Computed example of a mutant assay.
Amino acid sequence: MVNSAKEVRKITQKWIEQHLADVKDFVSLGLPEIDDRYNVWRVPIVLSNATSHLIGEAKIGLLGNVMDSTRPELIRTRAKRFINEVSAPDRKRQELFYPAPIPNKVILGDAMKVLEELPPDTAQLVITSPPYYNAKPESCEFIDYQEYLNFLRGVIIRIREVLSEGRFFTINVSPVLVRRTSRSTSSKRIPIPFDVHQIMASAGFEFIDDIIWVKPEGAGWNLGRGRRFAADRQPLQY
């Protein structure tokens, strides 16, 4: 029986030497953990110089046998690709708790202009609810959806620079509906959250979780009850 992570590491390392000999110097092992649902050890295979880059996984049985793994040729391809891409070390993690370098204050202004004035690593938390593209047609200022995404990309990239390492960025977005123009056409639903996720990932953010905001029935502005809900000082108790 395999009873320790140390034993699992030895077994996995031997498997790497047998199947990935040409890239073994660039490959390392992450934290082995027991998957009690299938009674196996799951061992992340990562890059030696960038342990946050997962390039494969090995499953070790409780008897010490390699039950399954990512295909060696796929691990090899990923390793060679990342060897060239990941040359600079990850940004040094800073202290998690320290006084904010700027005082607490309310700033009214354009998001891009305000963000440009803030120095790097100064924000401890960012919560934002950007425009929903065409949610309010009378105030929509974007030529098309791509311009809208470019606008979000610019803001998100700057937020990444302003936000301190290890802090959280919460963004409130939702799919929107482009209504049909006639009975012979159909409406189109645009999945904004999926596109925003791609932008945030490319900017260097790591996805943690999603929260679904379920509003009470009749909470829309077109109903009297909706206006009552929105105007209530304590809407969660309404």
Results as ranks from 00 to 15, higher is better:
residue 128 T to R: 01
residue 78 R to N: 13
residue 231 A to W: 08
residue 189 R to L: 15
residue 180 R to P: 03
residue 31 L to P: 01
residue 62 L to S: 03
residue 50 A to E: 11
residue 203 A to S: 09
residue 191 P to Y: 02
residue 222 N to R: 15
residue 144 D to N: 13
residue 171 I to A: 06
residue 98 Y to G: 03
residue 131 P to E: 07
residue 109 G to I: 04
residue 29 L to W: 04
residue 141 E to G: 11
residue 176 V to M: 08
residue 69 S to R: 05
residue 162 V to I: 12
residue 30 G to T: 09
residue 60 I to S: 00
residue 79 A to R: 03
residue 235 P to Y: 04
residue 86 V to G: 03
residue 3 N to K: 14
residue 121 D to M: 07
residue 44 P to E: 08
residue 90 D to P: 05
residue 104 N to A: 15
residue 218 G to L: 09
residue 212 I to T: 08
residue 222 N to M: 13
residue 104 N to F: 14
residue 118 L to Y: 08
residue 159 I to Q: 04
residue 194 F to Q: 08
residue 68 D to F: 09
residue 133 Y to G: 01
residue 169 F to L: 05
residue 68 D to C: 05
residue 234 Q to N: 11
residue 92 K to W: 11
residue 186 S to T: 13
residue 232 D to F: 12
residue 5 A to F: 05
residue 9 R to E: 12
residue 3 N to E: 15
residue 126 V to N: 00
residue 123 A to V: 05
residue 199 I to L: 04
residue 220 G to C: 06
residue 65 N to S: 09
residue 51 T to A: 11
residue 122 T to R: 00
residue 9 R to W: 10
residue 101 P to N: 00
residue 196 V to Y: 00
residue 83 I to W: 06
residue 72 P to Q: 01
residue 157 I to L: 12
residue 32 P to I: 06
residue 57 E to D: 01
